[in-house]
Design a protein around this nucleic acid. Structure first.
Lengths: 237, 237
DNA sequence: CTTGTCGGATTGTTCAACAACTCCCTAGGT
DNA sequence: ACCTAGGGAGTTGTTGAACAATCCGACAAG
């Protein structure tokens, strides 16, 4: 085969993959909106008008509504009957709820972890390294992202696809809360070291102590976020 | 009144009846199908034809598809592009995955449980009592249901709405697995006593030992289900 | 036996229309 | 001034039909 033939083949495949890409217009729309919500472009409380989005995205209402369903079940949108879909406004109860779920799952995974070799700990190591790097640069949002990756990797140690998906949903909701605070530094900075310490404990096989530390860690994070969130500058008159 | 007026009135009433609940048609359809799937009326692997269901349920294709989306995200249906939705056929990997998730969550909740008074343990007590009663009657499917209720109540001790929802999803998938076995007795009978023992430990405040027992309990249940499932009579040539 | 292709059947997506509901605004009573 | 009822206006909920894209099995050619 010639090079020309090869590139033609590749282009065909690329096109097929894109149009095939594990579902359809609805999923692509969902991905688009997901990014906007997570990135904070759409502040909590905003309504996503069907009419408007149909116009902008050039998809039918039905397709758009399927995308809404997807995001609703990820917790990134809330659906109120006959009123539309909104970017959720999480309150303190939600925060408490989310952290309870986190503690149960993350500590549950860590506590019954038997023998985690270096290979399986690699993603944790990478996440910590990325966080430390971002902290040196003073890029606190990036630190937050890296820390979240650390916790996702922590849950992944449980080796359950379903658990991973659950954790991803919880963290997506948590991002919604983090967004509302003006200065992210104090929320992320202290935990870079603590993640490192946690990783060291895991590498040493001290799962019991790791779980204990993680529990305290998450309690601290929760109460900190609670106080910050209480006097958050969100007042929409 | 003319016939035309009557038919208009009937149509209005019919719609009112159908939509008086604070839920959409899609959700009601989903609930209907959910029951059918969980009850085992639709064996794993069956395809749910849109055309057919539209005919039977008297809803439009779009509405039906929204219902499909709902159930897909609960894990009760799988969606294959351009092929339709199917009742999932869970294999041994799924079983392992589900039990890993269960152990992490349930043990995670129990381990960090501090002070569960009698009131909060009440649902657990009720579930155990129901299981014991059903066992006396020899109604093993009912025993299975009661046991599942016990575990849901266990997760509920974590006091997190999101955790409860996750657990409900996992247990719904597990039901799909339990259905495939012919004789449910050996799968449920032994755990009635063990649930009782677990409850006693919790009432005594021995959370650490309870978590330990629960872990062993779930490991036993898993390996038992694995062997049963391996020689399950499901062969569709 | 493998490979390629055709046609029927099913799903993916769009569109337009109407019914039902929420929200806001106004009018009227106290 | 306050509350309540009711009427639009605008949005969502649901339907049915239509067309395009895709899968599946069958059949023919090598």
């Amino acid at each position: 085969m010639t090079d020309a033939a090869d590139s033609g083949w590749l282009r065909t495949v690329a096109h097929e993959v894109r149009s095939f890409d594990r579902s359809s217009t609805a999923e692509r729309v969902a991905e688009l909106l997901r990014a906007r919500v997570i990135e904070g472009d759409l502040p909590p409380g905003t309504r996503l008008s069907e009419e408007q989005l149909v116009e902008v995205l050039h998809v039918s209402r039905n397709t758009l509504r399927e995308a809404f369903r997807l995001l609703t079940h990820e917790g990134l949108l809330v659906h109120r009957l006959h009123r539309g879909v909104f970017v959720p406004e999480l309150d303190e109860d939600d925060l408490v709820d989310l952290y309870r779920a986190r503690r149960a799952i993350e500590c549950g995974v860590v506590a019954r972890l038997e023998g985690a070799d270096a290979v399986r700990l690699r993603p944790l190591h990478d996440a910590v390294a990325a966080a430390e790097d971002a902290a040196r640069r003073g890029d606190w949002p990036a630190v937050g992202t890296a820390n979240m990756r650390f916790h996702l990797a922590l849950v992944a140690l449980g080796r359950s696809r379903r658990l991973d998906e659950t954790a991803a949903r919880l963290f997506a909701e948590l991002r919604l809360l983090f967004q509302t605070v003006a200065d992210p530094r104090p929320l992320h900075e202290p935990y870079v070291q603590r993640n490192r310490a946690l990783l060291d404990l895991l590498a040493a096989g001290e799962t019991a102590r790791a779980a204990e530390q993680l529990d305290a860690y998450l309690h601290d994070s929760e109460s900190q976020l609670r106080t910050v969130h209480r006097d958050s500058p969100r007042r929409v008159p």
